[in-house]
Simulated scan of single mutants.
Amino acid sequence: MYRFFRPPIVKFALNMWPPFWGAGIRIVRISEDFRQVRIQLKLKWWNKNANRTQYGGSIFSLTDPVYALMLIGILGKEYFIWDKQAEIHYLKPGNTDLFADFLISEDQLGQIMAATACGDKYFPEFVVQVKNTQGEVVSQVKRVLYVRKKPQYRATCEDGDKDTLEGARAIT
Rank of each mutant, 00 (worst) to 15 (best):
Y122Q: 06
D120I: 11
V130M: 04
T116W: 00
A115R: 05
T133E: 12
E136P: 04
F126E: 05
T116M: 03
L109G: 04
V127A: 05
I112L: 10
Q134A: 08
N132V: 00
G110K: 10
G110A: 09
V127C: 08
E106D: 13
Q129V: 10
K131C: 05
G135I: 06
G135F: 01
G110I: 02
Q134E: 10
G135A: 04
K121A: 15
L103Q: 07
Q129W: 00
E106S: 10
D120T: 09
E136T: 05
L109C: 04
V130K: 00
P124W: 07
D120R: 15
A114I: 01
C118R: 00
A115G: 12
D120G: 11
Y122N: 14
A115Q: 09
Q108D: 08
K131A: 13
A114F: 09
F126T: 07
V128D: 07
Y122T: 02
K121N: 13
V127Y: 00
I112D: 04
D120Y: 12
G119W: 07
K131R: 15
E106R: 06
D120C: 07
V128I: 00
K131S: 02
E106C: 05
D107R: 15
M113C: 11
T133R: 06
Q134I: 02
K121Y: 11
E136A: 02
A117T: 10
F123A: 09
Q129E: 15
V130R: 00
Q111M: 14
E125W: 12
E136S: 03
D107L: 13
D107I: 12
A114R: 04
V130A: 03
L103P: 00
K121F: 11
T133F: 06
E136L: 00
I104S: 03
E125V: 15
M113K: 14
G119V: 12
V127P: 01
A117D: 12
D107A: 15
N132A: 03
K131G: 08
G119D: 12
V128W: 00
N132S: 01
D120H: 15
G119R: 13
N132H: 02
I104L: 03
I104W: 00
I112A: 09
F123Y: 15
V127N: 04
I112P: 08
C118V: 08
I112G: 07
T133K: 05
F123N: 10
Q111A: 11
D120E: 14
C118E: 09
G119Q: 08
T133G: 02
L109Q: 01
V127L: 01
Q111T: 12
G110D: 04
K121G: 13
F123T: 12
Q108T: 13
P124L: 13
E125N: 14
F126A: 02
A114D: 14
T116I: 04
Q134P: 01
F126M: 01
